[in-house]
Design a binder for these strands. Structure first.
Lengths: 138, 138
DNA sequence: TATTGACTTCGAGTTACACGAAGTTGCTAT
DNA sequence: ATAGCAACTTCGTGTAACTCGAAGTCAATA
């Protein structure tokens, strides 16, 4: 099973521009068809999944490429430990981000509620000047 | 209570460079002392908290500025509904991000476990070529 | 008086795309 | 056969949000 750049972009909720960029910098491998068009196979799906998740950990592209290059090396068993440490670190980052995102969502819920109370006329609009938030979150 | 740029940067886990950038573009208001040094007060703390959370929702700086400008307007009651819709939308984004981040953290946990099984010698290293992940997450 | 340290402005560099122009290819419609 | 069209191609510039570094100012200390 192979995919055109359009299909592949849709699969991963990204753009064709981004995919061209990834293939151009050698991050994402792809074949070409007779008309020089990019074709993506199951291997590409795997790599792309890796890119997606590592990006969500906040990993810069350079570091993702570094990790992938380690995976793609001839003697990749020799850098097993290095790869493990990278993943371990990115895993920690992921958890940090998740906690942060959860807290942010909670905060925004408060903010929304605050606005709804103002809109229902229960309390006055105290937004101006500069009191961004529903009285220090509490 | 006021803060120097250094203190303020530390408070919000950011850099002095970034704070200068924010004040320069008019996103974050600040006073100056006799020596023209930036000083941040409690109002700035409020705005900065807003910036921090909105950024974590994925809001672009332009949109944050737009929202803040609405808040700072003379007749801000008149755009109350518009502000509410902005916040509501960003709140949804925050929840989306939180779910995504949670899923990412889980995925990375799997990946770490996979590496630990390889390291303990229970299963072979199948990373090469391109099998990024512990068999399709399952 | 000189040096230190913390700030200042300003301009250039970086990352990760985003966009658009211009060219190539394969397929269909006349 | 040719004309047109869609879907791709390369390539080069543009953008967002910093990031860095050089060069200057200014108050306080040695």
């Amino acid at each position: 099973m192979t995919y055109s750049i359009k299909e592949f972009a849709k699969m991963f909720q990204t753009t064709e521009h981004t995919l061209r960029y990834y293939t151009d910098i050698g991050l994402l491998p792809c074949q070409r068809d007779s008309g020089n068009h990019r074709i993506f196979d199951e291997t590409a799906v795997n790599w792309m999944r890796g890119i997606t998740y590592l990006k969500r950990c906040g990993t810069p592209i350079k570091d993702i490429k570094r990790y992938f290059d380690l995976c793609r090396m001839e003697e990749s068993e020799e850098n097993l430990l290095e790869r493990y440490h990278i993943i371990l670190h990115q895993c920690e980052q992921a958890h940090k981000k998740a906690a942060e995102a959860e807290a942010t969502a909670e905060y925004m819920d408060h903010k929304v509620k605050h606005y709804e109370e103002i809109l229902s006329g229960r309390i006055p609009d105290d937004t101006n000047p500069g009191t961004w938030q529903p009285n220090s979150t509490k």
